Amino acid sequence: MPTPALRGLHHAAIICSDYARSKRFYAGLLGLRIVAEHHREARCSWKLDLALPDGAQIELFSFPEPPPRPSRPEARGLRHLAFAVTDLDASVAALQAGGVEVEPIRVDEYTGARFTFFADPDGLPLELYEVSAGSL
C-alpha cells in the first residue's frame, strides 16, 4: 500500500484566547522570529507566522470568542498539525487509497501553496502542505 511520503513538520497552528498575550509569549518569551503578521478583516482575526530555528513555523491565530476545543478547527488550542509534502496529489491519493477522507485541495491566500486537511482516527485535524523538494 502506498504511503503519503511525509517530509517533515511544516507548521503547527494554534488558536489563542488573547492574541496580544500569546504574541508576547511566543515572540518575546520564547524568542521565535516574527515572519509575517496579517489582520484578516473578513474574519476579525489576526494571523502571526513565527519561525523556529529548524525552519518549522507556528501560526498563531485569534478569533472572536473561540470556544474550548470540542474536536474541530477554529476553537481555542491546537488548531491542526501540518506535514510538508512535495507531491500533494500523490499524498492525497495515498491517503484515499487507505480509506482516509480528505477535504478538497485549497490554495493558501498568502503563499499560493496548495494544502488540504484530513483527520486522524481520533478526529485531530491534520494538514498536508505542498512544498518544493528544494525547500526541505
Rank of each mutant, 00 (worst) to 15 (best):
P125S: 12
A13V: 06
F61Y: 14
M1C: 11
I58E: 03
E103M: 11
T3F: 13
S135W: 15
G31I: 09
T3V: 14
D108V: 10
L30Q: 03
Q57L: 07
G8W: 08
D89M: 06
A90V: 07
P121G: 11
A56G: 11
H11F: 05
A5P: 01
R106Q: 15
V107Q: 09
P64N: 06
A5S: 12
G99S: 11
M1V: 13
K47Y: 09
D49S: 12
G123Y: 05
L50C: 07
D89P: 03
T111K: 01
G134M: 10
R21C: 13
L29A: 14
L6N: 06
T3C: 10
R40C: 12
S45K: 01
V102H: 02
G77K: 08
S45N: 03
R7P: 01
L9V: 15
G99R: 06
R21E: 15
G99W: 05
F61T: 00
F115K: 00
A36V: 06
V131M: 12
A36K: 10
P64Q: 10
F61R: 00
A12H: 02
P125F: 06
E65Y: 09
L78D: 01
L126T: 02
R24T: 12
P53Y: 08
M1I: 13
L52R: 02
G8K: 08
A90F: 11
R43E: 15
G55W: 11
F117T: 03
L126W: 03
A97Y: 11
P4H: 04
E101Q: 13
D108F: 06
R43Q: 15
F115Y: 15
D54F: 04
P70M: 11
V85D: 03
R76C: 10
A97W: 06
A56L: 01
D49Q: 08
E41A: 15
V107M: 08
R79C: 04
L32Q: 01
A97L: 10
L32M: 14
T86W: 04
E101Y: 07
D49V: 15
A20G: 09
L128C: 08
P4T: 07
I34S: 04
F117I: 03
G98I: 05
T86F: 06
E109K: 04
P66G: 06
L136M: 13
L30A: 10
D108Y: 07
Y19R: 01
P73F: 08
A36G: 07
H39N: 10
H10S: 14
C44W: 10
F61K: 00
